[in-house]
Amino acid sequence: MLATKPSERLSMFTRALENNPQENVTTTTNIKMRVQNLNFYYGTFRAIADVTMDIPENRITAIIGSSGCGKSTLLRTLNRMGELVAHTRTQGTVLLDGENIYDRNMDVVLVRRRVGMVFQRPNPFPKPIFDNVAYGPRLLGVRGQELEQIVEQSLRDAALWDEVKDKLHESGLALSGGQQQRLCVARAIAIKPEVILMDEPCAALDPIATYKIEELMLTLRSAYTIVIVTHNMQQAARVSDFTAFMNMNPQRAGVLVEFGPTKQIFTNPTKPETEDYITGRFG
């Protein structure tokens, strides 16, 4: 499947979406990011082996797989967060709108501005709610009324505004776990990224807060491209449009086993390994 030409691949996505009645897709979808022959090393240990996959625009792509298979590592290569760890090395390319983010002329700050991230544990700054969301835009020089508008809109888009509008100057840490995570989403979208990476965003949340984040992802999808790592397979099934299943090869490096429309992965996977994983026969 990954050996096909890009044009064929695009039409394959489009067809898959048209055949998916869960989707109301009227327009074709572009490829936002393209991972090509990616290898990632911690020292001499190869954690990701030769991963090639496309991430469609305005869709939710889930990466699933057992613990230690390299899901989070792969996610962090998408905005060059991986290189923040010492003695790491990345090989291969990651294209964002056709440009290699690992190109030596690429501004890494700009990459991370365009590709934002929400982490597993809600990590609001120990600051008022307003300042949490205003943090990024302020760094970019936004002030005054425009800043207030951005904060309000981001909180609205993160489905949090109604709950916090009367206490914008209270600490972000005073919110519940689920609210804190939505605050982190608001903070991420305040600088208008194009892609949002989510690393187990619901791992620390109860079921209701989880459903709220999932519903939020479904609303954000029309404006952002979302990639989520989750070891909760049911969550991947519920929210994503496309699913990537990763596993470890005998050298314990993460490989991409299968990528496809979520509906197909969960009703009729093509690889026996995927079938075994999603039916709970291993992993």
């Binding site: 998916n20 009645p21 869960q22 049911q234 099934a237 519920r238 979520t262 509906k263 969960f266 009703t267």
Partner: peptide
């Protein structure tokens, strides 16, 4: 068949 397909998808993905 369309309804059947949508039903399977909901059963498989939405628990």
């Amino acid at each position: 068949y369309e309804l059947e397909d949508r039903t399977y998808t909901l059963l498989a993905t939405q628990q």
